[in-house]
Design a binder for these strands. Structure first.
Lengths: 145, 145
DNA sequence: TGATTTGGTCAAGCAGCTTGACTACATAGT
DNA sequence: ACTATGTAGTCAAGCTGCTTGACCAAATCA
């Protein structure tokens, strides 16, 4: 059996999805963001996070995370608030612009997945999702290889 | 239905697979290579390729591909031969060390996939492979996001 | 209290990529 | 055959996103 091409298939599918979402986000007007920023937004949405927590989520150093936050703040996607319980820390939260961007990303994701559901059928797509959830190790998302 | 986490699952699975193969290759003694080199090896195995062909496969500039070839040649994984029909070009081929490394990568890939087959069962793993082959767009592999 | 740890930033450096310029050879047009 | 244009490859310089190292202020532990 030829399973050795599975790595390539998995990578190609992942890349197609990320590229598609990125393209959809750009056509919706957010042209100054990379996919990596989307991974950050995912962690920040909700209650927000500190720089260190964001760094852990992205699997980069806290310095790198701090730089990204600085960039996103300058572009108006996030803002730094004083942390409610720790005077050293700062709570990074999405601005309204940041939340609008995440909504755009959600729309783009659905748009990319629609032809996938058509191609495979909804039930196999759900089976795919379920199988992947068993295989995916909860860890860093950023590949950088 | 909650399909919006499919991107994350796909990425996590892809990353787990690539990281696992990379780790397996390292434990087999090839500690001076990155996963990106493996994508290059895949194109070079067989008849070899020119720098430009390799650049297209990796979706980088020919300058970047040339630098990688220089590095791999210095480390003994590839060698540059005169091209049989084009005096400008040079045919990049794997050395015996390079072929040994690709064999190690194949072993490592099987090793990583074994627990996957156990987790899902062989038939669902094959179904996964088949579904992915419908979704994966043949294009560049390197993500760099 | 004093000692150590933790959150965040500043600064410098590095790796892998890019663009730009150039040479040598190939190919097409006349 | 001759010229013009295109292509394979390399050299050089620059950029970007990350790293390591140093540091301060606040928290936590003894």
């Amino acid at each position: 059996m030829t399973l050795l091409d599975l790595p390539v298939l998995l990578l190609s599918a992942a890349r197609a999805l990320v590229d598609g979402i990125d393209a959809g986000v750009r056509t919706r007007g957010f042209t100054d963001l990379r996919p990596a920023h989307g991974f950050a937004f995912a962690r920040l949405s909700g209650t927000g996070a500190t720089v260190v927590q964001l760094a852990e989520h992205l699997d980069v150093t806290k310095q790198a995370a701090s730089q990204m936050v600085e960039e996103l703040a300058k572009k108006g996607y996030v803002e730094r608030r004083p942390h409610p319980t720790d005077a050293r820390a700062r709570l990074i939260v999405l601005t309204e612009k940041g939340r609008a961007c995440t909504r755009a990303a959600d729309e783009a994701a659905e748009e990319v997945l629609r032809p996938w559901a058509k191609e495979l059928g909804p039930e196999r797509l759900m089976a795919l999702r379920q199988d992947l959830s068993k295989l995916a190790t909860p860890g860093r998302l950023r590949p950088t290889w």
